[in-house]
Computed example of a mutant assay.
Amino acid sequence: MHMKACSTLLIIFSFMFQACGQTSNESPSKGEFSTSPKKVKPIINIKGNTIETRINTPPGFERTSAETHSFGEYLRQLPLKPDGTMVRYYNGIPKPNFNIYTAVVDLKIGERDLHQCADAVMRLRAEHLWSQKEFEKIHFNFTNGFRVDYSEWIKGKRIAVKGNDVSWYQAGSPSNTYKDFWKYMEIIFSYAGTLSLAKELTPIKTDQLQVGDVFIQGGSPGHAVIVVDVATKPETREKIFLLAQSYMPAQEIQILKNRNDKGISPWYSSGFGEVLETPEWTFTNMDLKRFE
């Protein structure tokens, strides 16, 4: 009996040793080996009211730096209407969102069918310069090549258009209110477009892309969209960007979705190759240009 008892105890101890030492399929005790996954911020922050605060970068990307009061900072800080707002045409009718845009810029566009694609690009450029009081830098060409300087406009001069002949004339006293500025822009909208703007801008390569650059095809119709933000991945220097547009008929500026890469939409990769597909137009890598 004594030998049997010892044998029985040995078996029990052997079983207990095997049970404690065997590999288990159970999860380790909380806090010992497991690590909690990091929370990933969604790309769209519905509470944000600017491009920078509404649209987060994808994991691993960081926004490029922008100098204070620069065009890049201005575009990044463009005000946005509440999430889910529909784009409105110049006449107040809403533009259906057939997977086209992810946000609407909160800027008035006037009540005439003028604020279209190239017009929106020129408007953003001019708005920034006007806000910085760099009035001498505000100038655009009509389609016939006539250069219209805002510095002449604020002297009280206006434009006379007779067929293809264009000239200045003195119409009143010097004035430089925002109302004056908007009247100037409506003249630009009326007689300039993608054809003229494409000739004014400087071609650049896509690997040099920065905030404020423009994808543009001059034509009738043509189209233009503007880069309103850029981010990079520090480890690889991979670059992504956001695009904004107006369209026909005249409509509010909208931040475009990326239908071809929903994982990073509304961001686009600068490594898109030869063709850049946007919801309402297809560009090529030769269509990227810059204001100088």
Rank of each mutant, 00 (worst) to 15 (best):
T278H: 05
L243K: 04
K257Y: 10
A250C: 00
E238W: 02
E235R: 09
Y247E: 05
P249F: 01
G263T: 14
A231C: 11
T278W: 03
E238Y: 03
L243T: 03
K239R: 11
T232D: 09
L243F: 00
E277F: 12
S269W: 07
K262H: 11
E277A: 13
Q251F: 07
L243I: 04
E280C: 06
V275M: 15
L242P: 13
P266T: 09
P249V: 00
E252K: 04
I255E: 07
I253K: 01
F272A: 03
S265N: 10
A250V: 03
K233S: 08
V275D: 11
L276T: 13
I253Q: 07
S265G: 13
Y268A: 06
M248G: 02
S270P: 09
D261H: 11
S269E: 12
M248P: 08
K233C: 14
S246Q: 00
N260Y: 13
E238K: 00
A250G: 15
R259Q: 15
T236H: 04
R237S: 15
A231Q: 08
K262P: 11
L243M: 00
Q254P: 08
L242D: 10
G271R: 07
P279T: 02
R259T: 11
P234E: 06
E235C: 04
E252Y: 06
G263L: 13
Y247N: 04
L242R: 10
E274F: 12
P266G: 10
K233H: 13
G273S: 09
I253V: 08
R259A: 15
I264Y: 13
L243W: 02
S269Y: 12
Y247K: 02
G273A: 07
L243V: 03
G273W: 13
F241L: 00
L243N: 03
Q254W: 09
S246N: 01
V230Q: 09
S265Q: 13
G271C: 02
Q254F: 10
I264M: 14
D261L: 02
S246L: 00
F241M: 04
S246K: 03
I253N: 04
K239S: 05
I255L: 15
P249M: 00
L276K: 08
R237Q: 15
G271Q: 08
F272M: 06
F241Q: 00
F241E: 05
Q254L: 09
K233A: 08
I264S: 12
T236D: 05
R259M: 12
P234Y: 01
I264Q: 13
P279D: 00
K262R: 14
M248W: 02
D261P: 13
G271T: 05
K239I: 03
L243H: 04
N258I: 02
E274L: 11
T236I: 02
G263A: 14
N258E: 05
T282N: 14
A244V: 06
D261A: 10
L276N: 14
G273F: 09
Y247V: 01
N258P: 10
L276P: 12
